[in-house]
Design a protein around this nucleic acid. Structure first.
Lengths: 218, 218
DNA sequence: GTTGAAGTGGAGGCTTTTTCTCCGCTTCAG
DNA sequence: CTGAAGCGGAGAAAAAGCCTCCACTTCAAC
C-alpha cells in the first residue's frame, strides 16, 4: 500500500503537501493539458516548485502518480455503485449512471487518457491497476446488459469514450461550476435516451479489445 | 466578399497555399490546441513557415481567419439543413440532427471556442459573423421546438455545448477515423434520446444570453 | 521564349518559457 | 531544545517557438 520499497515515513506536513500537489496536478492537467508548466501545479497546490520536485522525480513521475490515484478512485466508485445496486433493488443502468456521475466529479475520465498518452502504455506498475479499474466497470456494464436496462449494442467502449467526451472541460472561459453543471445535464440526457429505447443504435459498438488494438496500432 | 480593402488578387499558387494553410490550421488547432506551433501548421499544409507568415500577420491573424471560415461553414450547413427540411416533410429534430452531424465533420464546434478564447470577443469583424451563424442555428432549434420534435427544456445552449463536447477529438492516440466514427455514434445516441422522450430533462437549460453572460463574467 | 513581378523555403538570430538544482531558512517531532 | 526533515524561490541552463531575411523558383503577360 506504500510507494516503491518501504517508504521512509513522511512527516505530517510533507504528506499533506504530497496530497495537495496530486490534487492540484489533476485539476491543472485537465484544464491545461498534460504539458502544463509544473510551476502552475505547484502554485495551485500552494507549495514551492522545489517541494513538487522533491516528491516527484519529474513530470512523468507526477503523471504516473496522478493516473494511479485516479484509477483507484474510479475502481472505488464502480464498486460502490455495484454494491449500492444490490442493496436497493435498482437496476443495472441506475448503478451505471451513478458511477458515471461520480466519475464526472472525480475528473477521472478527463485526466487518465490525457496522462496515459505521455506514459508507457505497457508499464508494469500501471497495467494491473488499469485492469482492476476496467474490470470493475465492466461488471457494472454486464449487470446492466443482463437485466435488460442497457441495450446490448451499447458497449463498454461506447460508454468509456462517451464519458471522456463529457468529462473534458469546455474550452473558452466557461466557469468551472457551469461547466460541471452542463456536463451532468448532458450525461442525464444520454442516460435518459439509453433508458427509453432498447434499440437506440442500429449496430453494436466496439469491444474493449477492439478499442485497445485500434489505439495501439494507428 | 473579398478581404479588407480590395485584395491585390493573388496568383493561383498563392491562393492554393492560402487555402491549404487555413485547412491545416483548423486540423492542427483542434488536435493540439490554439497554441500549437505554427511550424506544425505550415508543415501540415505542405508549405514553408515563411509562406504562412506571408499570408497571415501572426497567430492571431490566422486564428481569426480560421474562425471566420468555420462560422461561415456552420451557417451554410444550418441553412442547408433548414431548406432540406421544408422540401422533404421531415421534422425539425431531423433537420437539427443533420446539421449537427455536418458540424461534427467540419470540426466547427471544436475549433471555434478554442480559437475565440484567444481573440477579442467583441471584435467588430467577428461579431456579425457570429450572429449570423448563431441566428441560423437558432432558427433550426426554434423550428424543432415549434413542431414538438424537440423538448422545450432542451435549449440552444444545451445543444451548442453538447456539440462542443462531441466535436473535440479524444485524447490519446485514437486514430482520427475511429474518433470520428465514435463521435457520430455518440451523437446518434443523444438524438435518439431526445426523440424518444419529451420529458428527458426535469428543468430548462440556459438560454443563449445566460450562457454568454456566464462566460464573460467569471 | 523572355522577363520581371510575385511567390517560395528554411536557416538562424532572438525572445520567451520551462526545467530543475542549490542553499540558507523554517518547522516538526522526539 | 535540537537536529533531522522539510521548505521556498532565485537563477543557471536548456528547450521551444517566433518571425525575418534573402537567394532561389514559378507564374503569367507579352
Amino acid at each position: 500500500m506504500s510507494g516503491r520499497r518501504d517508504a521512509p515515513a513522511l512527516r505530517a506536513d510533507a504528506r499533506r503537501n504530497h496530497e495537495q500537489v496530486l490534487a492540484a496536478a489533476r485539476e491543472v492537467f485537465v484544464e491545461r493539458g498534460p504539458g502544463a508548466p509544473l510551476e502552475d501545479v505547484a502554485a495551485r497546490a500552494g507549495v514551492g516548485i522545489a517541494t513538487l520536485y522533491r516528491r516527484f522525480r519529474d513530470r512523468e513521475g507526477l503523471l504516473r502518480a496522478v493516473v494511479l490515484q485516479a484509477l483507484e478512485d474510479s475502481r472505488a466508485a464502480a464498486e460502490s455503485a455495484l454494491a449500492g445496486a444490490s442493496e436497493d433493488d435498482s437496476d443495472g443502468l441506475s448503478a451505471l449512471g451513478e458511477y458515471m456521475h461520480a466519475v464526472l466529479d472525480l475528473r477521472v475520465s478527463a485526466v487518465v487518457p490525457l496522462a496515459l498518452d505521455r506514459l508507457d502504455l505497457d508499464d508494469a506498475e500501471l497495467t494491473p491497476v488499469r485492469e482492476a479499474s476496467a474490470g470493475a466497470v465492466e461488471r457494472l456494464v454486464e449487470s446492466a446488459h443482463a437485466d435488460g436496462s442497457l441495450p446490448k449494442q451499447v458497449t463498454f467502449a461506447d460508454l468509456g469514450t462517451l464519458l471522456v467526451r463529457l468529462s473534458r472541460p469546455l474550452p473558452g472561459s466557461v466557469p468551472i461550476e457551469l461547466n460541471d453543471q452542463l456536463a451532468h445535464r448532458h450525461l442525464d440526457l444520454v442516460l435518459a435516451g439509453l433508458r427509453s429505447d432498447p434499440n437506440v443504435l442500429a449496430d453494436e459498438g466496439l469491444t474493449r479489445q477492439e478499442l485497445r488494438s485500434a489505439r495501439s496500432r494507428p
